[in-house]
């Protein structure tokens, strides 16, 4: 597959020479991104110069920024969780998943006051959560496992970045969050009660582009995906180097980066193809997340994962 794509790409590049001027006139693909270990490969790629000029990264503080700017048309693509992707889709912007950046295997977690020892103890507690994010999904799952209703707890809708302050003020008893905030909270005294490793291959962080971009600027999409995999390779192969770079970029300790890396699965190219195949895991999860009446709009399949290796 990969080789055939390489061949196709080589041939395509040969044909593309004539159209170089046309390509260069295109606006760079504006890609929204926010701090998250799964998205770090793109930052690494940018730092090492593996990100072509056809793509520019637009950093935000959280996924909410990316969602808003996607909807406003400011961005051509963004790094989102799968549920956020579906949320944007259901709000009328057609998106195409082009890569699975990571699969949460414990990165998203419920941290609680040490006095809370079981899920049943959550009843009546104040829980900080970014409702319109992946954390919301996790919370629903937790409630389902705990056998609690939505009303049995007090939901405090807060962006993950503000959780440490909320905890410090004593506003919340628990928080649904993810790394690196999770590590920071844990150092502040909370304990982990539940994490995404309890629900494997459910929380996907994906790279998406708008349908229009996929159609009109496939070269840039290809560059984006290629840069992601180049960065991923460095992250995995030269972890000794990468952890320091990720740590200095996120402003955390390298140890935290190592911890964070332990909580995600970073699928390589072939794993990506497996996930994004028709009726693959991503599509299955997406269908489960998606209200049936809107499923028609949800189009996963064309993910053009074409990457020079």
């Amino acid at each position: 597959m990969q080789r055939r794509d390489f061949l196709a790409l080589s041939i395509a590049s040969g044909f593309a020479v004539a159209g170089v001027t046309g390509c260069s006139q295109q606006q760079p693909l504006a890609f929204g991104i926010h701090p998250w270990i799964g998205y770090e490969p793109l930052y690494l790629a940018r730092d090492f110069g593996w990100l072509p000029e056809s793509v520019t990264l637009k950093s935000g503080t959280s996924s909410k920024d990316s969602v808003d700017r996607l909807l406003s048309g400011e961005l051509d693509g963004a790094a989102l969780t799968l549920d956020e992707t579906i949320r944007v889709l259901s709000r009328g912007r057609e998106l195409v998943v082009v890569a699975v950046a990571d699969v949460s295997a414990g990165a998203d977690m419920l941290v609680v006051r040490p006095s809370i020892t079981g899920l049943a103890d959550l009843r009546g507690q104040r829980i900080a959560v970014e409702v319109n994010g992946v954390s919301g999904i996790l919370l629903l799952k937790i409630l389902e496992v705990a056998g609690l209703a939505r009303d049995d707890i007090v939901t405090v809708d807060l962006p993950v970045s503000q959780h440490p302050q909320a905890w410090a003020r004593g506003d919340v008893d628990a928080a649904v969050c993810y790394e690196p905030t999770a590590s920071a909270l844990q150092r502040a005294g909370v304990v982990r009660l539940f994490d995404s490793s309890d629900m494997p291959e459910t929380i996907f962080d994906v790279l998406v582009v708008t349908r229009a971009t996929a159609d009109t600027n496939p070269e840039a999409v290809r560059d984006l995906v290629g840069a992601h995999f180049a960065g991923l390779q460095h992250l995995v192969r030269s972890q000794h180097d990468a952890v320091y770079r990720v740590a200095s970029r996120q402003g955390v300790d390298p140890v935290d980066v190592r911890n964070a890396l332990a909580t995600v699965m970073l699928p390589d190219l072939s794993a990506n193809q497996r996930y994004l195949a028709a009726f693959g895991r991503v599509e299955t999860v997406a269908r489960a997340l998606f209200p049936p009446d809107a499923q028609r709009e949800h189009d996963q399949q064309p993910a053009p994962v074409k990457t020079p290796v």
């Binding site: 770079r245 402003g251 390298p254």
Partner: peptide
């Protein structure tokens, strides 16, 4: 030192 890398924690 040339090309000094800013690596937090290193």
């Amino acid at each position: 030192v040339l090309n000094q890398q800013a690596l937090a924690g290193f």
